[in-house]
Design a protein around this nucleic acid. Sequence first.
DNA 1: GTAGAACCTGGAGCGCGCTCCAGGTCAAGC
DNA 2: GCTTGACCTGGAGCGCGCTCCAGGTTCTAC
Lengths: 150, 150
Amino acid sequence: MTSGQPREPLPRDREPTLTIAQVAERTGLSHDTLRYYEKAGLIERVGRSTGNQRRYQAADLAWLEFLLRLRGTGMSIADMQRFAALRAAGNVTVADRLAMLREHRAELAERIRALRRNASVLDDKIDHYQRLLLDEHEIEHEQPGSDETT
Amino acid sequence: MTSGQPREPLPRDREPTLTIAQVAERTGLSHDTLRYYEKAGLIERVGRSTGNQRRYQAADLAWLEFLLRLRGTGMSIADMQRFAALRAAGNVTVADRLAMLREHRAELAERIRALRRNASVLDDKIDHYQRLLLDEHEIEHEQPGSDETT
DNA sequence: GTAGAACCTGGAGCGCGCTCCAGGTCAAGC
DNA sequence: GCTTGACCTGGAGCGCGCTCCAGGTTCTAC
């Protein structure tokens, strides 16, 4: 124990593990969120130390990171639960998982399109305000106020 | 009153108005949400009939539709409140409003970029599952199960 | 052995953006 | 006058995704 990193006894056939604090730091999730995700079934029950403290393995971290990608595409907890349950059920659910991801991907594409449409309205409004400001400066306050609609 | 549309007496210098039901239908918002937006100050107090019922004008509808664009870009109610308050304060706030929209636009661009990054991880996973399924079919069930990581 | 930090559990609480409800008013048709 | 339905108000409630809390255990350093 010379480095600052607390480690398990490491019985040599077991890979090194991470504490909840380390996983929190690596993923950006809070301790509470990590425990919540486990309770919610998003991640399978994580291994424990002899004293019942969580010890995450590399696979747990990888899965968490994928969950974060799903969350980052706007997938709901409920859908992630469904996906996690399929995953836990083994390889026979690969087709189902593929279908879920494809559907989600399509929705995401649509959401991105909608965002871009709305963004362009935003751009128009920005242009409009810019022109208003320019005109205001050109005319150098003649008639302050009272032409408000936008 | 020959058509099914209930109208105000229409004193001729007043434009035609819309009931809350008509606005709900046009905007896709519920009656409750319309009232909530008004209570929250997102829209200024809408005109009323003699019987205290809301009568929306074209300008109200236009503003609502712009709000919906803002909402559609992920702007929070709190920010929309700020924006609406600036608007209500008149033309002197145009520069502030421009600044708000620009900042929001920048955040939106970043959010869209993040979505696309996450989407590409999703695409990779989809490819991965597709390949898994293909291999499975090629090999025609030899060793069902037990190579699960993804 | 002991202090203090890190961790555990179950459950309550919160901020957001609505949504619903109770109890009432108003307008139109019969 | 009566019924029906659209509308009104204030306020409670809800689903989501966490976040916080109390009370207890465990781990690490000294």
